[in-house]
Structures are given as structure tokens and as C-alpha cells.
Amino acid sequence: MTITQLYYVLAVAEHKNFTVAAERCFVTQPTLSMQIQKLEEELDVQIFDRSKKPIQLTEVGQKIVTQAKNIVSESGRIKDIVDQQKGYIGGDFKVGIIPTIMPTLLPMFINNFIKKYPKVNLIIEEHTTEEIIRMVKNGQLDAAIAATPLDEESIKEIVLYYEPFVAYVPENNPSFKKKEFEVEDLEMNLSNILLLQDGHCFRNNVLNICKASSLPSDNQFHIESGSFETMIRLADEGLGMTLLPYLHTLNMDSKSTAKLRPFKEPSPSREVSLIYSKKELKLHIIDALRNTISGVVRGAIAFQNVAITSPLQKK
């Protein structure tokens, strides 16, 4: 039994396809299949049920995969120990970022990071919070950037910054004359608020601020969009107001900026954190990423008096 064989097993278990798994492992499909077959022969069990499409784990295969994850993960610690001892910061590092953070935060730090740590191959993927939690737990992501707290026992969270919400109110909206918003203003006008589609934690943030589990059912239309730009355009068309994360407002033109309204302190805000598994692999790269982001964001966000809202949907 080898670490490589277990790595191939995990790849097939994830992708449920030998060809795709081989591509992700950068080996030929016959090589991957042969190594898995050798492992099955050594253990005298079938790990995969190849008669099903897509390929499924057998009952014993599920138990083997669970243990294989631990073994492969722990084996990675050896290289981590050596790299840290040598002061080497490099290698592949896979980061997940939620969609409502990716467009604003990534351009702020990516150039600084790759210039400072040229030996790190930063692989960045966009995922929902739910996907990120699963992938961090399964070792498919080395770290992630998401709204917290997530209340996950196996995941560590390092707060990067607190980002206030800002109201975007067009001229034709009755609330446009307000210079400052209060949470009560949202609670009384929930049917007038445009929100992102289900699956986005920013939507949950806003609903939690309003102490609501969903939008009123008497809305005249229903939209499924994951784009703040779509929400802004709909608001400009007179279909309501929307809430934006503060960083998203920094590059707006003067015409749009005139429609922004801050909240009375303590400002309702989201907590943005760097998260990773408590197994603590590649901590030296995690620290480098945290320091880079913190150094850049510190100049853009200086808010202290904030009220953190949960990214988890409240029932």
C-alpha cells in the first residue's frame, strides 16, 4: 500500500470517474486504474462498484476513503515540517473564495502576494460557503476566505476584517432623502429590498439583520441573481433598494456614490475570515496569505464600531 495509491483512490472517490481522476492527478488513466486495482488485490476487497454510473464506493470503500483522507493529510505534514524548517514558502496552495468577496478582495492582494511569494502556486477557486466548508473538511482546499462565524468545530477562523453594509438607494425611492439608515428602516421595508439569490451568505446576512427568514411573499417579481451589479441596475430602474458590502462601493462613480447611505453605528457588518482545517497543514503559507491581505485591507477599512451579523441562515 502506498500514499500514491491512496491519493488515486481519493481522486476517483471525488470525481466518480477514472478518466477525470487521472487527468487531475496528471497520470494516464491505465496507470491510475492499475494502481487502484493493485491496492484492491492487496486488501482483497472492492473499493469501487464499477458497474454503476457514475462509479460508486462500496460499503467498505467508504470506510477506506475516510481513513485514506487522514493518511494522505498526515503525510503532507512531513513536507510541511521540512519546508518550515528551511523557511521555504512555495508549492501549490488552493484557496476558495465566496462570490461576494472574490471580485473586490482578490484584486487588492493578488499582485502583492505573487510578487512577495513567487514560489507559491496560488490556485484560486470561487465557491459558495456551503461548498467551501465541505471542501476544507475534505482537504480539497488548503484554505478559504468567507464570511464568518461558521460554527464548524473542525475549522479554524482568523478574522481578516469587518466589512460594513451600505444601502444603495436610488433617487426615486422614498428613503433617498435619509442621510443615515437604521436597522429598523430595513425591517419596516423588507419588501422593498433587492437581495441576492439563495445560496449566497450575503443574502443570509441581510435577512438576519432584518430578523427575517425570507422575503415577503407579496413581492411583484422574483429574481435569481448572484450579481451585485444586477441588483444595482434593478434599483436604478425603480424596483427597490439594495445593500452592498463596503468594499464593493469603493470604485463606484460619483453618480452612484451619491445613492449610498451608511448605517448608524454600530454599523451592521460581516466578518470576513481566512479559514482552514484544524489539521493545520501549510501553516507557513496561511500566515503569508493572512499577513498580505491584512496589510492591504487595513488601509481600506478602518471601521471599529460594528455589529457582526451571521452568514448562517436563521430559521
Rank of each mutant, 00 (worst) to 15 (best):
E153F: 11
Y117R: 03
P118D: 12
M108H: 01
F109S: 10
Y161H: 09
K86D: 07
K79I: 13
D83F: 03
D151H: 10
K116S: 15
Y88D: 04
T128Q: 08
T100F: 06
Y162E: 15
I101A: 02
I101Q: 01
D151T: 07
D80I: 12
I123Q: 15
P107N: 06
V82I: 15
V159S: 12
I78C: 02
K94C: 05
D80S: 05
P149F: 13
E153A: 12
P149Q: 11
P99C: 08
Y117H: 12
V120D: 07
S154Y: 07
I155R: 06
E157C: 14
E131W: 03
K115F: 10
G76S: 08
I133V: 15
P107R: 06
Y88G: 05
T128L: 11
F93K: 00
P149N: 13
I78N: 01
P103N: 07
I110E: 05
L122V: 08
P107S: 04
K119Y: 11
G90K: 11
K79H: 06
K79P: 00
N112D: 15
E131A: 14
D142V: 06
L106E: 03
E126Q: 13
I155L: 14
I78T: 12
M102K: 14
A144E: 02
K116N: 12
P149Y: 07
R77K: 14
T104I: 04
Q84N: 12
I158H: 13
Y161S: 01
G139P: 10
A144N: 03
A144K: 00
A147V: 11
T100N: 12
D142G: 08
M135H: 11
R134A: 13
M135D: 15
I78M: 03
D142R: 05
D151G: 12
G96L: 04
L150R: 11
T148F: 09
E131L: 04
I124S: 09
I155C: 10
K119T: 14
P149W: 06
N112V: 14
G91F: 04
M102V: 05
I133G: 04
I132T: 10
I97G: 02
F93W: 02
D83W: 01
F113Y: 13
S154L: 14
P118W: 10
D151R: 10
I98P: 00
I78D: 02
E157R: 07
A146K: 01
G91N: 12
T148R: 03
G76N: 08
T129V: 11
L105I: 12
P103Y: 04
K115S: 12
G96S: 05
L106D: 01
L150T: 02
V95W: 00
T129G: 06
Y161D: 04
I98R: 00
A147N: 10
I78L: 09
I98T: 12
V136N: 09
G87L: 05
Q84P: 02
R134E: 10
E126Y: 04
P149L: 05
